[in-house]
């Protein structure tokens, strides 16, 4: 249908984004040089200075990459635990209504409790290092897994359940041949949301629990305290790239798997 060559199409689709970026950088320079006086320029150092003194300087960059690697580990471990816990809890809840009624409210409460209120307790239970950061990550990213999986498990129609009843299906057969396969798209949808949240969880967990190796969230605090704004900007940039990359991986996974699930390859 589209007769334009691919590079033109790409330019057209990327154009607005590139334009917005250029505008943002222009604004950035304007604020750095026109709004801020020399002695206050540290509040928003110009882009080239951020790149030169921070991003391109291995002495500054290396600790950030190390911290980022740690945060990625926290996010991945947290996400894996959230997925396993979330799917398991949903499977348990879908077995009987009373289990759902018993457990769902607590899933909601867990989601609404401010993490800050749990920090002291988590510290006592899990220490102030890696484990607690992972726990924060799990708490933040768990709910979408539970609610999405539950929604998916409950999606088969009454007629589909009748079909299984008529063929004397066991509870296990109903779960693995009807409910879980029906839930696959919803589970991947939940995974996509939880992946984004696990990145936030990893960074938030970092800022609360500071023992051991420092994560990217911890670095942000350190840079703020030392007024190393160039490094602060680079670290924020890296954290954002991390978030976007993590989200993209799972969004792509979602598209590929769910696209194939019903035999339709989406384009």
């Amino acid at each position: 249908m589209n007769k334009r060559p691919w590079y033109l199409r790409m330019l057209l689709s990327a154009g607005p984004m590139v334009g917005a970026l250029a505008t943002a950088i222009g604004l950035w320079y304007a604020v750095s040089y026109l709004v801020l006086s020399d002695d206050r320029r540290f509040m928003l150092p110009p882009p080239h200075q951020v790149i030169r003194t921070s991003l391109l300087d291995p002495v500054h960059l290396q600790p950030m990459l190390d911290a980022l690697a740690l945060s990625v580990r926290v996010a991945v471990v947290g996400l894996v635990i959230a997925v396993v816990l979330g799917v398991t809890q949903a499977v348990v809840m879908v077995q009987t209504t009373w289990l759902e009624r018993a457990l769902y409210p607590y899933a909601v409460i867990l989601q609404t409790v401010p993490i800050l209120a749990l920090v002291p307790l988590l510290g006592i239970w899990f220490g102030y290092g890696f484990s607690s950061r992972v726990v924060v990550c799990v708490i933040i990213s768990l709910f979408p897994m539970i609610s999405n999986t539950l929604f998916g498990l409950q999606s088969p129609t009454a007629a589909a359940h009748d079909l299984f009843t008529l063929n004397k299906a066991t509870r296990w057969q109903r779960l693995v041949k009807l409910q879980l396969p029906a839930a696959v798209p919803a589970i991947f949808g939940g995974l996509r949301i939880s992946a984004g949240l696990s990145v936030i969880g990893a960074i938030v967990g970092d800022t609360f629990f500071r023992q051991g190796l420092v994560g990217i969230g911890g670095l942000l605090d350190i840079y703020t305290a030392r007024l190393q704004t160039e490094d602060l900007f680079t670290a924020i940039g890296l954290a954002s790239v991390f978030g976007v990359a993590f989200f993209t991986v799972f969004a792509t996974l979602d598209r590929i798997i769910v696209g194939r699930w019903y035999g339709v390859v989406r384009r």
């Binding site: 007629a159 009748d162 079909l163």
Partner: peptide, 10 residues
């Protein structure tokens, strides 16, 4: 045989 075909879409 149900009113709807009731097939498993996957």
């Amino acid at each position: 045989v149900f009113q709807e075909p009731t097939l498993l879409e996957w």
